[in-house]
């Protein structure tokens, strides 16, 4: 892995066992992600996009192959090291937002700081600043149920970014949003990318992928089948 790379993936496989049958979600993926890159993964359902994202996010462990990051190699990390990797190196957002329903927007964002080295006394301000930065100043004390889909996803982005990760992993972040909100969310991701952050986004929306990405990778049946340049220079 050279200095411009932030993630290097080689011969990555993932097998799931469902009863007696085995499902190979990834069949040998090789991928190199540059620091500061906006990378989109597209493909049909079941092509392995989300599995790849989960493996990069340290939520799952590969069957074989390696994911190299500046903090270590996923697959060889201990569960505690992997948790620390998730806490510091990556931020994740999801299609269904995955906010904790009984916590306010601010409390949801603060939750991400519980597992970092942030001082407990600074958490509230950090969370509030991040939500204000994303245009949710008036929504700090609202619960997810009181927010629109776009607002919920912005809270989720705030939660992912508040811990200042190296890589933002977005799993179909616009899947539950209308066009305007989708564009707004992608703008937020692109804005963060412009500041030097690395984004890996899984999406079904090819137009958005082309518009906001440096590279678009198409996956099919657990392998990367195509790579095209995105709209970003």
């Amino acid at each position: 892995m050279n200095s411009t790379q932030i993630i290097s993936i080689s011969s990555l496989t993932k097998r799931y066992t469902l009863g007696a049958s085995e499902i190979w979600a990834l069949k040998g993926v090789d991928l190199s992600v540059r620091k500061g890159e906006f990378l989109s993964l597209v493909g049909s359902s079941g092509s392995g996009k989300s599995t790849l994202l989960n493996l990069i996010g340290g939520l799952d462990t590969p069957t074989s192959g390696l994911i190299e990051t500046p903090t270590g190699k996923i697959g060889t990390m201990s569960p505690r090291e992997l948790a620390r990797y998730r806490a510091h190196f990556v931020g994740m957002i999801f299609q269904s937002f995955n906010l904790v329903p009984h916590r306010t927007a601010q409390a949801n964002v603060e939750l991400a700081l519980y597992f970092t080295d942030a001082h407990p006394g600074d958490r509230a301000k950090l969370a509030s600043d991040m939500l204000t930065h994303l245009g949710l100043k008036d929504r700090l004390h609202h619960r997810p149920a009181d927010l629109s889909g776009g607002e919920q996803q912005r809270v989720a982005i705030a939660r992912a970014l508040v811990k200042n990760p190296e890589v933002l992993l977005a799993d179909e972040p616009t899947g539950n949003l209308d066009r305007d909100n989708s564009l707004a969310i992608c703008e937020l991701l692109a804005d963060w990318n412009r500041q030097g952050g690395t984004v890996i986004m899984v999406t079904h929306n090819l137009d958005l992928a082309r518009q906001y990405s440096h590279r678009v990778l198409r996956m099919d049946y657990g392998v990367i089948v195509n790579e095209t340049e995105g709209g970003l220079p």
Binding site: R80, A83, N98, K163
Partner: peptide, 15 residues
């Protein structure tokens, strides 16, 4: 789901 969210945010089994 909340457990999953916390794990995605960096909680380990011990937490």
């Amino acid at each position: 789901r909340e457990i999953g969210v916390m794990k995605s945010l960096g909680a380990d089994d011990r937490h």
